[in-house]
C-alpha cells in the first residue's frame, strides 16, 4: 500500500472542492517516535494529507490524465498540535487549473476546531516549463490507486 494519509473522502465535487477525513491513531508507528511519551501528529504529514486531498481533486479535474506533483507549499499555518484520538478534516478547493499547473486552497480542522490553512501549487509535470520529459505511464495515478479511489466514491470512470 502506498503512502496514504487520508482515510476517506466525505465530499467530492469534481473540479471544485473535496473533503477528506483522517483519524489519528496511536497505533501509527511514527507517533511513537514523534515524540517518545508525547505523541504529536507531525505537521509535515498534515501537509501531505492536504496535498493528497487537493492533489486527487486536481487530478480528477483532468480525468487523471496529468501527472500531478506537489511543486510548492504556498502557505502552511498551524494553530496548535494534534494528538492521537483526534479526527482531521481536510477541505480543499481549486483556485485555478491551467495546462501546466494548478493552485489549491485548503483548511484543516481537528475535532471540529480550526487547525491549519494550507495552500499548494501543483505542477502538471508533462507540461512543465523546463521541457523535461517523463515516462508515458502515469506513475502518480496508477491503476491500483484509481481502484482505491473508486472505493472512496471518487469517479475514475473517464480516466
Amino acid at each position: 500500500m502506498r503512502w496514504i494519509w487520508i482515510d476517506k473522502f466525505t465530499d467530492f465535487q469534481s473540479g471544485v472542492r473535496a473533503t477528506a477525513i483522517k483519524n489519528i491513531s496511536l497505533a501509527e508507528e511514527h507517533l511513537h517516535d514523534h515524540f517518545p511519551a508525547y505523541p504529536v501528529m507531525p505537521a509535515s504529514l498534515i501537509i501531505e494529507g492536504m496535498a493528497q486531498t487537493a492533489g486527487i481533486l486536481v487530478g480528477e479535474a483532468r480525468d487523471f490524465a496529468e501527472k500531478v506533483i506537489l511543486a510548492k507549499v504556498k502557505k502552511a499555518r498551524f494553530e496548535r498540535e494534534v494528538r492521537p484520538g483526534e479526527q482531521l478534516k481536510y477541505d480543499a478547493a481549486i483556485e485555478q487549473v491551467t495546462e501546466e499547473a494548478a493552485m489549491t486552497t485548503g483548511k484543516v480542522s481537528a475535532d471540529g476546531e480550526p487547525l491549519a490553512e494550507i495552500d499548494i501549487v501543483f505542477s502538471h509535470i508533462d507540461n512543465n516549463l523546463s521541457g523535461l520529459t517523463f515516462p508515458k505511464e502515469n506513475f502518480v495515478f496508477t491503476e491500483d490507486f484509481k481502484s482505491l479511489l473508486r472505493t472512496y466514491n471518487v469517479s475514475t470512470a473517464k480516466a
Partner: peptide, 22 residues
C-alpha cells in the same frame, strides 16, 4: 525557481484582474 514563475503569474492575474497568456 521555475515553479515560482507560475505562482507569480497566477497571483498577478488575481491581483490585477488580468489574463496573462502563457
Amino acid at each position: 525557481e521555475s515553479i515560482d514563475f507560475l505562482d507569480i503569474v497566477f497571483r498577478l492575474e488575481k491581483t490585477f484582474g488580468i489574463k496573462i497568456p502563457r
